[in-house]
């Protein structure tokens, strides 16, 4: 499924969170959304997921507006940031919630999808554990498995690696790229620029509600954007033929006064 966001504006309390933003999401691509806090990344993801209606503009799914409901929910999975879990359900029951859009029509396929999702994020061994007994990283991987269990064509993940240790972060990024290679369109909001530049196929750099750069990761995270948008200087190099960006120090002489 292709998602085309056209002229998306979201206003809240008189201020624009997103202003006239265009973005396309394509199958088979790992797209990283990067930008400083308050750039509007999470809001954009919610608009793409059909959860938040834009003030102006439209989101087209394969060229058509969606009315929401289970038809869209089967094709599009959304993983919010923060990892809200309200009841102390087991890992397996939490992951199984990803099958709700499928309405239990094919229980064998549901079971297979749940098992595969738990295996992919390494939580199969935890399946009978209560979710409030897990570590932050285990919980994040459980919630990622929940999103994978939808078996959607598009996965929108808001900071999916925020709570993970380095090894799990690498596993998760490799998993997202594997999903993309298998045809899923993956959009991930990322704050870790070194992982974003290393693993994503394309980066979209956002600032104050607009897209300021878009394209190949190392081109988007050039010295100028890092200084002007993030207010940092970074070590930029290559290692094993892959681009490396390591935030190094706060940039001198930028218009930015700090992350607020």
């Amino acid at each position: 499924m292709n998602i085309e966001a056209r002229g998306i504006t979201v206003e809240k309390g008189g201020s624009a969170i997103l202003s006239g933003l265009d973005l396309s999401v394509r199958p088979g691509e790992l797209l990283g959304l990067v930008g400083p806090n308050g750039a509007g990344k999470s809001t954009l993801l919610r608009v793409l997921a059909g959860i938040e209606p834009p003030t102006a503009g439209a989101v087209l799914y394969d060229g058509a507006r969606s009315v929401g409901g289970p038809a869209l929910a089967r094709r599009l999975a959304y993983l919010p940031q923060g990892g809200e879990v309200n009841w102390s359900v087991t890992v397996e029951d939490a992951v199984a919630l990803g099958r709700l859009p499928h309405r239990g029509l094919d229980t064998a396929r549901d079971a297979a999808a749940i098992a595969a999702a738990m295996a992919a994020t390494g939580v199969a061994a935890l399946k009978d554990r209560r979710i409030d007994t897990l570590s932050g990283g285990e919980r994040m991987r459980t919630l990622l498995a929940r999103a994978l269990a939808v078996e959607a064509e598009i996965l929108l993940a808001d900071e999916p690696i925020a709570a993970l240790d380095p090894a799990s972060q690498l596993d998760a990024m490799a998993l997202l790229r594997r999903l993309a290679r298998a045809g899923t369109g993956v959009v991930a909001v990322l704050h870790d620029l070194s992982l974003a530049v290393r693993w994503c196929d394309r980066l979209v750099l956002m600032a104050t509600g607009s897209v300021v750069a878009e394209g190949a990761p190392s081109a988007v995270l050039d010295a100028r954007n890092l200084a002007e948008i993030f207010g940092i200087e970074a070590l930029r190099t290559e290692w094993e033929g892959q681009p490396v960006v390591v935030p190094w120090r706060r940039a001198e002489r930028t218009g930015r006064t700090g992350p607020g």
Partner: peptide, 19 residues
């Protein structure tokens, strides 16, 4: 089913197709 989905919060429930 919608109450089950709300276990993971309102945004996830909405993304699972519940109004």
């Amino acid at each position: 089913p919608a109450l089950d989905a709300l276990t993971l919060g309102e945004d996830v429930a909405a993304s699972l197709g519940f109004d």
